[in-house]
């Protein structure tokens, strides 16, 4: 159990960090939260395949970016997916994306 936890911590650092770098630089995000929720999906058929067994397959993202201004939800999600396409091809399985503009999160 302990050793697995350590391994996950290491893996988290890598993919989550790569994601953060990619999203931050292009989207100029004022908020960028990345949460690894892979453990919630460990029973998933795709997750039992050995190559993904190290976790880092499911993430929740919360991004606030001025680049989302005037974009539909589909377009905002596409922007994120495009930035993360390498990750999606290498075992990133699902993203839950909350994409807002600074205006949308501003207190009224």
């Amino acid at each position: 159990m302990a050793s697995r936890g350590v391994m996950n911590m290491g893996a988290l650092a890598s993919r989550a960090n790569r994601m953060r770098t990619k999203l931050q630089s292009t989207l100029e995000a004022s908020v960028l939260e990345i949460e690894d929720v892979s453990h919630q999906h460990s029973g998933h058929a795709a997750m039992r395949e050995s190559e993904y067994s190290g976790g880092e397959t499911h993430f929740n993202l919360k991004i606030v970016s001025p680049k989302f201004e005037g974009q539909t939800l589909v377009k905002r999600h596409r922007m994120v997916y495009d930035l993360l396409s390498d990750e999606l091809q290498s075992g990133l399985h699902a993203l839950s994306i909350n994409a807002k503009t600074p205006q949308e999160v501003a207190p009224k």
């Binding site: 999600h77 999606l88 993203l95």
Partner: peptide
């Protein structure tokens, strides 16, 4: 669809989105 995840919902031939978008809509 140029969309990397599932589920995907289409309406009138256009991609509406996945779970997050459906939920927020």
């Amino acid at each position: 669809s140029n969309w990397p995840t599932f589920p995907q919902v289409f309406a009138k031939g256009e991609l509406v989105g996945g779970c997050d978008i459906l939920t927020s809509m």
